[in-house]
Nucleic acid binder design. Structure first.
Lengths: 198, 198
DNA sequence: CACCTTTTTAAACATAAGTTCAAAAAATAA
DNA sequence: TTATTTTTTGAACTTATGTTTAAAAAGGTG
């Protein structure tokens, strides 16, 4: 890969990052191409050299984030044999990742409101892929009989909800450090999937 | 109150309902005043007779929803002496209400992206008010020692998150009826606040 | 340096949608 | 029925902002 194309890729990433950080505060529709560009000391016209349009920029941000998340959880499943530890690790990682990438996560809350057609299909497929990895982790805990097989999806939704909702209340200025916070959340969330009599 | 003013009020409510149902599917920014009006067989000009502007319409929808929710939870606290039952009831009611009013709930997910200034303050205050009612319910369970006092806010956020995230996955066509679903969710969520050894 | 390719610019363009307004229609009251 | 008030209309207005484009600038290569 030539230096040129590497440079272009880097610029693309920078643009995506600039976009997501502004979108986080203001929301997609309140973020203008002008702001995104200004943030990088460019003019909005330049953005169209890298992205077909604003929608395309948004879409690529989402795909990037989801692919990274899937990579995370997949490697956790691969590297942990103990089901409980694996789930615990997955929850912690999800939370930490969410804290770190809060910006882009916020965008993906309601994909139906931002994407349609092929783009929406792609996003939903990636989300589904991620959800299935979580299901896998839960299914591995079946023998503990903490949850019934038919409730896996429900429990997964409860867990993801409790975590993803963080974008509503998490603040870096909070009293807990992000590690402590993740640990504490994990502790409470694990209660959902643990057997009553321990 | 004269017949006139009653009629005006009714019309306002109709407009709010029309707006929220369209906003639910499309998102606020993809919903036009024209659509909202057309849905009621009116022209968009008429909407401005009832609401100052689009923003005002959105705001009033949110306030209405939040006030109703607060009314719900307040009456639950008032009418239940047993802490555990009260919390259980509150969770069930919250879920049922969310299912029923899915449309408007979806709007309030990220108030910072839709409101600013006084409006945002009002919304946040109402949300805070609701949260405090939930905290009250949790605090009443302190003697069970299932959660520590300093974790009340965290636990409340986890519970609200798991529930509110429903707007992401709930479908009326799901396999469970809304009653069953609410009951099952409540069962799993109560595990978070129950003591380990029961 | 001279040539070619890539990148950036700034201005022009396009358009969707929120808002205003004067006039018409409908509802109510006397 | 006539007069008055309320409601609705539909066209005109306004503005914000995404997008296009031709030309300039920068970067790379022989």
């Amino acid at each position: 890969m030539s230096l040129r194309t590497l440079k272009t890729k880097k610029k693309k990433t920078e643009i995506i990052q600039s976009a997501t950080s502004i979108i986080e505060e203001k929301g997609f529709h309140n973020t203008t191409m002008e702001e995104i560009a200004a943030n990088l000391l460019m003019t909005k016209g330049s953005l169209y050299y890298y992205f077909k349009n604003k929608q395309d920029l948004l879409f690529q941000s989402q795909v990037l984030l989801l692919e990274q998340s899937i990579g995370n959880i997949a490697s956790i499943i691969e590297n942990n044999t103990n089901p409980k530890n694996a789930l615990k690790k997955a929850i912690t990682t999800h939370i930490e990742y969410l804290i770190e990438e809060q910006a882009t996560f916020a965008m993906g809350v309601n994909p139906e409101q931002f994407f349609e057609g092929d783009q929406l299909d792609t996003i939903l497929e990636l989300r589904h892929n991620y959800a299935q990895h979580v299901d896998q982790l839960l299914l591995n805990m079946m023998e503990e009989k903490a949850i019934e097989t038919k409730d896996v999806k429900l429990v997964r939704n409860l867990l993801l909800g409790a975590m993803n909702w963080m974008i509503e209340w998490y603040s870096p200025q909070g009293s807990l450090g992000s590690d402590e916070l993740a640990e504490k959340m994990t502790m409470y969330l694990m209660k959902i999937v643990e057997t009553e009599s321990k």
